[in-house]
Design a protein around this nucleic acid. Structure first.
Lengths: 64, 64
DNA sequence: ATACGATGTCCAGCAAGCTTGACAATAGGC
DNA sequence: GCCTATTGTCAAGCTTGCTGGACATCGTAT
């Protein structure tokens, strides 16, 4: 499941740590999601959508 | 995280087993999600949205 | 040259998602 | 009465998501 986290972060000039802090998760989690090592849980996906002001569908792509 | 699975199933007259088959998960998983014992993974949430022809946001509610 | 921020990755451990198999309770049809 | 479909739930086991701590690399600034 691909995602647009890296671009969305870049648009806002946020580091992985910045995003992690806003999401209240570890920096390692943000990195793992961003590099595609695993997908976030549904609750975390909602928080990600919220901090970016987008829908889950606008951030995560059905790629398989 | 609340969801509208039970109503959406009822509207289509699908049993939990019917839905589970369409989602390619176990009946117990559908039941557990529907009764709120746990949230689906993000990939499963996308499949749920797909079988109902809705967005994730239209099915799962941010109630935390 | 060295210090620092940012990123990628590994590990060990715990929590959550999902599985099969099983059993009980209810409702409806015969 | 019995049979079947449906739902709820439990247990044990495997996989995935998430954690803190650690370490290496790279780029930039001093």
């Amino acid at each position: 499941m691909k995602n647009r986290l890296k671009v969305l972060r870049a648009e806002r000039d946020w580091s992985q740590q910045d995003l992690a802090t806003r999401l209240e998760v570890s920096r390692q989690s943000v990195n793992a999601i961003e590099t595609g090592r695993y997908d976030p849980s549904l609750p975390l996906a909602f928080r990600i959508a919220d901090v970016f002001g987008l829908t889950i569908e606008e951030i995560f792509l059905r790629t398989e």
